[in-house]
Amino acid sequence: MKTSNPVLSRLGQAAERERSAGYSPAGPYGPAAGQPGYGQPYPTAEGYPAAPPAVQPMTIDDVVVKTVALLGITGLSAVAAWNLVPDSLLGVAWIGAAVVGLVLGFIISFSRMANPALVVAYAVVEGAFVGLVSKTYQEIMGFEGIVLQAVIATFGVFFVMAMLYRVKAIRATPKFRRGMIAVMGGLFAVMLINFVLALFGVTTGLRSNGTVGIIFSLVCIVVASLSFILSFNEVEEGVRLGLPQRYSWTAAFGILVSLIWLYIEMLRLLSFLQGDD
Rank of each mutant, 00 (worst) to 15 (best):
G91M: 03
F253D: 03
N209S: 13
N194A: 14
D62I: 11
M1K: 10
A32C: 06
I221D: 11
E144F: 04
F158W: 10
V79I: 15
N194Q: 08
V239G: 02
L118D: 01
K168S: 13
M163Q: 09
V64E: 03
M184T: 14
I193K: 01
L256Q: 14
S271I: 04
S227K: 06
D87M: 06
A93W: 00
S9K: 13
T250C: 04
P49Y: 04
R177S: 10
I60W: 12
S109C: 02
G96T: 00
W82T: 02
R17G: 13
S111K: 11
L11G: 12
V167A: 00
F155P: 06
I193V: 15
S111V: 07
L8P: 03
T173C: 00
I181P: 00
A93L: 01
S4H: 03
V124W: 00
G27N: 03
V212M: 13
F232L: 06
Q13V: 09
P36F: 10
A198E: 10
E234L: 08
L259C: 08
V202K: 13
V223H: 05
I146S: 03
L90F: 00
I73W: 09
G72K: 05
K66A: 14
F253P: 03
Q56P: 04
I260P: 02
K2D: 14
A252G: 06
V64N: 12
A123H: 02
G254E: 09
L199R: 08
V125E: 01
P86S: 02
A26G: 11
G238E: 06
V92F: 07
D87E: 12
L104K: 07
S111R: 14
E236Q: 13
Q149T: 12
V85H: 01
I108P: 12
S77G: 14
Q40N: 02
A182M: 09
V196Q: 02
T250K: 15
R10N: 13
T154L: 11
A26C: 09
L102I: 01
G275S: 14
V147M: 11
P36Y: 07
A50W: 01
G72F: 04
K168H: 11
W82L: 01
Y48M: 05
V157I: 15
R246T: 15
S258Y: 09
